[in-house]
Write a protein that binds this DNA or RNA. Structure first.
Lengths: 188, 188
DNA sequence: CGCGCGATTGAGTAATTTCAAATCTAGTGG
DNA sequence: CCACTAGATTTGAAATTACTCAATCGCGCG
């Protein structure tokens, strides 16, 4: 199962068996049930998660009690409360499992230690981080420019199986509209 | 003037004179007038910009002709069309100067070359990129959860001088509302 | 003084939300 | 196989919010 991570890393940079063993030694594997939390709002969140199998989401509950989904993460994706992870502050999002999920996680300190021991991980995480920036920049543009219908079509085009795996209520929370509005948009 | 970049780098990692000379050799300095474009929608955008002095914005004009501001960048900030920069695709945003501006820019290839020659730049850009992720994640949350008033207050709190340097129309475009709506929000 | 640009105000319109009710669906037990 | 229930989805109607478009205001500059 952890070979998923190795393959993921080797998409960017090739590593030896020894190097992968070193990398893996910094990660901890965790199995989670549906609805289990990885990160809870208000708590410390010193871990970054790599999804081996399953599906998780990060979401925020605002003052009005509305839930907004920041990100879905399925197989091969990284997820964390980035600010809480990097600054050691309290989480502003919940991260919880939408399915039975297997993750590997690494602490902030261990990530830094790993990168200092193995320079190619600096490279790897730089590339990953840049890709994350691209995705987030696109998401901001999407939220600002596109109508809910366009955002919906874009999401389904990009992640066809998400539609099968999560409720429309959650998709609406990701798109930034109520479930009623999403329903009306897709039927009309 | 370029010492601004050195100081910026040394906030993260210390470098020698020789190393800074090497770094600098990959950058080109450019002086721009107000309203001058660094990146134009639809064109290639192989450069990443570091603002030495002045103020620029990245923005997107949607199908309806509305302008949306993705980012402001002032002294010590990096800006680019991240996707176009990293993937070599065409830009989806304009980047233009709101004031007389001095920038340093580096091409994608040179950035990669620099990082491969000087591993601490891999580290530096990883850290910067992570910080960018934090900022973007917060921006997404802000766009989804906060009212325009809250977004306005947050922006002004974070960048007090922005209010002095840019028109309210531009601030409205950043917040994701019309200038009329912003005007009503701040007067009421 | 008058021009031009940005900001504000007003009124009508369009879109989204809210709240409630109805419908659909998958899974369970008889 | 069918009825039943819980959860999810859809529909309806009123209320709210933001937008559009037009007009007005305010200020700096020639």
């Amino acid at each position: 199962m952890v070979d998923v991570l190795r393959k993921h890393i080797e998409d960017i940079v090739s590593i030896t068996d020894e190097e992968f063993a070193l990398i893996l030694s910094y990660f901890t594997k965790k199995s989670c049930k549906k609805h289990q939390y990885l990160v809870e709002m208000g708590a410390l969140a010193p871990n970054e998660y790599f999804v081996l199998q399953g599906l998780v989401k990060s979401s925020h509950i605002d003052q009005s009690g509305r839930t907004h989904i920041l990100q879905f993460a399925m197989e091969n994706w990284w997820i964390s409360d980035m600010e809480a992870f990097q600054k050691g502050t309290y989480a502003t999002v919940d991260i919880d499992c939408l399915e039975k999920t297997e993750v590997l996680y690494i602490t902030y300190k261990d990530k830094e230690k790993l990168c200092s021991e193995l320079a190619k991980m600096d490279y790897f995480f730089r590339i990953k981080s840049s890709a994350g920036n691209v995705a987030l920049q696109k998401r901001v543009l999407m939220l600002m420019c596109a109508t809910a219908t366009e955002r919906y079509n874009s999401l389904i085009r990009q992640y066809p199986d998400l539609y099968q795996r999560v409720s429309k209520t959650l998709i609406a929370s990701y798109l930034g509209v109520t479930r009623e509005t999403l329903s009306r948009l897709t039927s009309g």
